[in-house]
């Protein structure tokens, strides 16, 4: 479902030019859970951002469900974000003035869908936060906030869920709970690509890519050929 073909990304120019990604190609199939690993600054987040349409590659292409998304205009990207790709961030990124329930409903607000309250409550129940629905992010623990962020990501039923070190800010126990939630979603058929430092997560994933200096250093169960 996702193809990344010969993607390179560099910042700056001339002698100050920094290459973040160098000729990366990979394929992700429906229902897979791919972990992207590697040392800090190796380009993991940049790759995830390019896949999610948040950044544009310097060269190469990204194809989601047969459609090129790397060169899309702003309006087309908006509809991709609304319907196909969702993000979970390391620092949760909830809106502080909204309750947990309202944060979950936020993507629906921008889609103009106003009758999703019951579904949002259902999702909160699924992640075990039904009782905390009326609480604001400031009143929730880190693990709870991340679960809310995950509920917000999946409410729009995305075909691809991207997560950037979702357990990076957590202690081991909370991290395991979040990971268990991702695994559960994956078992239900959710395709996930996750940037992580954790070997434990990588072991649970269906495939692993290790990046170093912008290139794929090693891989497990991931096809890195073109097309």
């Amino acid at each position: 479902m996702l193809k990344v073909n010969n993607v390179s990304k560099s910042f700056g120019s001339g002698s100050a030019k920094v290459t973040a990604l160098d000729d990366i190609s990979l394929r992700v199939n429906q229902g897979e859970f791919i972990a992207i690993m590697g040392p800090s600054g190796c380009g993991k987040t940049t790759l995830l951002n390019i896949i999610g349409g948040l950044e544009q590659p310097s060269s190469g292409e990204v194809i989601l469900d047969g459609q090129r998304i790397d060169n899309m205009d702003e309006n087309a990207l908006v509809s991709i974000r609304r319907d196909r790709i969702a993000y979970v961030f390391q620092s949760y990124h909830l809106i502080p003035s909204l309750t947990a329930l309202e944060n979950v409903l936020l993507p629906m607000t921008f889609r103009g869908a106003n009758n999703e309250r019951a579904r949002a409550m259902g999702l909160l129940e699924k992640i075990g936060l039904k009782e905390r629905a009326g609480h604001k992010p400031g009143e929730l623990s880190g693990g709870e906030q991340q679960r809310v962020a995950i509920a917000r990501a999946i409410i729009s039923r995305p075909s691809l869920l991207l997560a950037d070190e979702p357990t990076g800010n957590m202690d081991q126990k909370t991290g395991r709970e979040i990971l268990a939630l991702f695994n559960r979603l994956n078992k239900e058929g959710q395709t996930i690509i996750m940037v992580t430092h954790s070997l434990e997560i990588a072991e649970g994933a269906s495939g692993v890519i290790v990046l170093q200096d912008g290139q794929i250093k090693s891989k497990k169960n991931v096809s890195c050929t073109k097309n």
């Binding site: 948040l54 908006v78 974000r81 990124h93 809106i95 729009s156």
Partner: peptide, 16 residues
Amino acid sequence: IKDIGIMRAVGASRGQ
């Protein structure tokens, strides 16, 4: 900036 970024990431258009 962060809030606006979040809204954009979850599907807010420029018009919104």
